[in-house]
Amino acid sequence: MSAGGLALDGPDAAAMILALHLLALGLYAAAWVLQLREFRQGRESGHGGVRITAGGFVAHGAALALFTLTYRSLPLIGLGPASSSLALVMVLFVLAASIHADLRPAGLFLLPPVLLLVGQAVLVGVGPTAGQLAFRGPWFVLHVTAAFLGYAGLAAASAAAIMYVLQFRALKRKEFGSVFRFFPPLDSLDRLNKVGLAVGFPALTVGLLAGWSWTLTFGRGLALEDPQTILGMVTWGVYLIAIIARLRPGPHGERAAAISAAAFVVTVTAFLALRLLAGEPDFFL
């Protein structure tokens, strides 16, 4: 099979996709270790981590582009491709946040889930699944893309929330250590939380609605027993609570951050529980 103009056959392309994933994984890991070291040393975050992350993003993007060209299908189906695509969107949030120098340290919390997702993709393999052809059409692409954007936005909001809570406590308790020095100012974290929710929540809503519409095209209704539906609904619900907490009058900063952080824990717990219960190991859930 030819991958566009690259003229790679199936096995060669698969090997290249894997190699690019490994390269991206290594670069993300290096960026995270660098940020961790800066944090432990109580230094302010430098450009190094962002540059390495950007390098990983390029390799990662190239891998998924090659997947699309090789298999003539977007990498949205199957545990490996879907994990990898979600990770790529999350890295996009890391890089977007890093444009604001204050928010470079966000990678400290956003890169570990990226590493887990890319690592998982590498372990299970980034190849097409048997049922690949069944999952096509604009509703499906919109459903998955919007859902990934939603999850990534909410992950960014949660990372900001966790950092906000830790920085708030350090400032209140007058602890001028690593958290005080390395973490961004409260105002910057509050803005990242707001942007993450503002992007993530509507995107997730669109993703859920598109998914429902997609099931209707098969003549089926909303499958409430489907683990993916459950996860989507749980995530949507907890982040709705986080948004309401932000909108309530009074000092909202710490409260909203704490609820966002809790929402993240609930979402991850729900994902892991449903993943264990899910019958189809090849699917994202």
């Binding site: 204050d102 920085q167 400032l171 005080f180 961004p184 100012p185 409260l186 105002d187 910057s188 803005r191």
Partner: peptide, 9 residues
């Protein structure tokens, strides 16, 4: 600096 750690700027 402490004020900036709260307000960013």
């Amino acid at each position: 600096r402490l004020a900036i750690k709260v307000f960013g700027s």
